[in-house]
Design a binder for these strands. Sequence first.
DNA 1: CCCACGTGTCATTCC
DNA 2: CCGGAATGACACGTG
Length: 677
Amino acid sequence: MSVDGPRTSVFTFQSAVHSHHVLRSLEELREKELLCDVTVEVERRSFRAHSSVLASCSGYFYTRLTNHSQANLTVRLPDEVTVEGFEPLLQFAYTAKLHFTKENILEIHRCAQFLGFQNLDKACFEFLVPKLSDGGGASKKVTSKSKNQASHDESQAICSPNGPNPETDEDCVPQDASAAMQAASVTSSAESPKDCPPISNDKEMQLDLSPLYTRSTSYHMDDGQDQFCLQNCGPQLPSSSLAAAEVCPFLSISSTSDNEKLHSSAADCGGDILAMEDEFQKELAVDMHCEPPTDKDLNIASITKGHFDQCEGPVMPSTDCTQLCPLNSAQSSGVLDGISGTPDLSNIGTEDNRVFDSNEQTFSELTPKDCCTERSMEEREVAEHLAKGFWPDLSSTLNEQLPLDSIDQPSAGNGSDFHWLKHLDLGAAPDDCPFLRDLSSNNTQTSGRDTLSKEDTGDSPCMSPINSRENSECESDGDCTQCSNSEQVQEVDLPFPVEQISSMTRRAFLQMLKREELTPEQLEFVQDVRRRSKNRMAAQRCRKRKLDCIYRLEGEIKKLRSVKEKLLQDHNQLKLSIEDVRQSLSGLCQSLCMDASPQSEQVQAMARYVSSDCPTSVLLTPMASPSLAGPDQDTHGNSSLDTFLADTYPEGDTVALRLPAAFLQDSVQSTVTDPAP
DNA sequence: CCCACGTGTCATTCC
DNA sequence: CCGGAATGACACGTG
């Protein structure tokens, strides 16, 4: 980009799937032993792998492999590393998924520490080892530290040669082997007794650190679906700036017994998110390249990617949920993209896909007993950790800002977590989006009166303040309906938030009317507001349906056009074939005419017919035209076609002519009527 | 000024 | 019969 030239806008497209794809491809290559340049020997077993992958994941391998330039290096691991511990780690290196059982978790932990495996310790072992081993001396020391502190340390982490630093940035050089050894030595003293009480059957659990490990901007599922959520509210989130649960609704729907706790965090950062929206939109709208990153860039990056504040440009949502959930801001879109990927959450939290196995499942349907009744406490905790582990700071914020009313209302909890969704355009078709469904009704029930001023988006809580004319016009148009509405609200002085009116169920609405003993003016106003609001949303749905219908019909038209195209092509093809046949037949007849006596009127007639446009034809062979081979011909002494054919093509020759049927009739007639020359 | 488009509202119909 | 949803028609603001 020229400095002197006119300022040009630089946009950044960041693939949400690229990193995951690369990792998956590497795994495939490893499975096929393609491009593998290193053999790792563990306990007499050999594992083929890519040195770059190993080096990038493990400080031990980094040191061992970067110091050698020879191809096809063989690395023999010391006895401290076992196959039991190494194999899952190797798998993790290529898949970001760690498969473990309570039996092998300690071994994996030990090997991971020895090898200086990054991205696992804090996110995984600190919690899992003590949980699964019931001893966990090693981790106790660390976990005794407050989560906030730990998080702070992580966020302050710098490249240090002194030890494994799982959360270090990519620019950092992995710790050296001595550090790995040091880590291993620490671990050895920390090994937990294996006689821990059984917590469950040998269920294998899976920790998926894809978003963390690959540092992609997007968590990518195996089925190709993108998820934004995990990095939006991933473990890297600084606790001070953002409460993860606010961005990630899944925390709020945790199917654990801590469900209520999680709600508390929802209130923490809504303001942050919403306040940043404008900036974010501006950022995405145009302009601003990313070099060097501004504070704002970093700020945004911290929202979207956690505190790894590498400037990679504004993160564009990579998936398209907008059809289902039309949004008004790119950020919302991104967030919602994350929501769209919910099915994968089930992978994270538990093997039991019941937690969230369908987009169709609404949050309100999720209750702790839905999914956790058959688990031991430890299992549940582990599952929770796997789900919450991506947001380690969350727990520290729990119970701190939980509004009492949100606890008191069991159903309200679901809604209270989603007031950030108010910035989405729900109007288009709330029913189309499983995540928005049912939100409107719950949402405003929990929003207190104090939220009225801030979140007054008109009488419909589902209306986007961006799209809502009622809101957007208020600033410029004093006569707008919203303003008069607001004035009316002030006039009638309702004892409850006006946005509740439309979101309530009818029963609740009537009960409220009963309870509040409104004046006739208030009553009229409230009913009017409710009616208009409902109708507004209905109109929006109706229009959305119309549009959908139009799109569908357009698609069908396209399809039919292509079918028509194909039929036309076939038609032309057939036409050409017919022409070919006609020409060949014509040539054949001409040759017949040459050979036959010029008196043969049948042949001439045949030639006439061949050259004419007669679509009908019959098969005629010298031996198979009994109608022509009657005694009449012989009686008249005429050279009938049959005789002609028989003469022209002696026995043995196979001649099959496709001649016009009319020709045959004509030929017979002429044979009968015409006098012999 | 005109026009297309988006949106809110009203009236009506349907379920 | 009532309420809610759906929808056509209209009005209005905006670019």
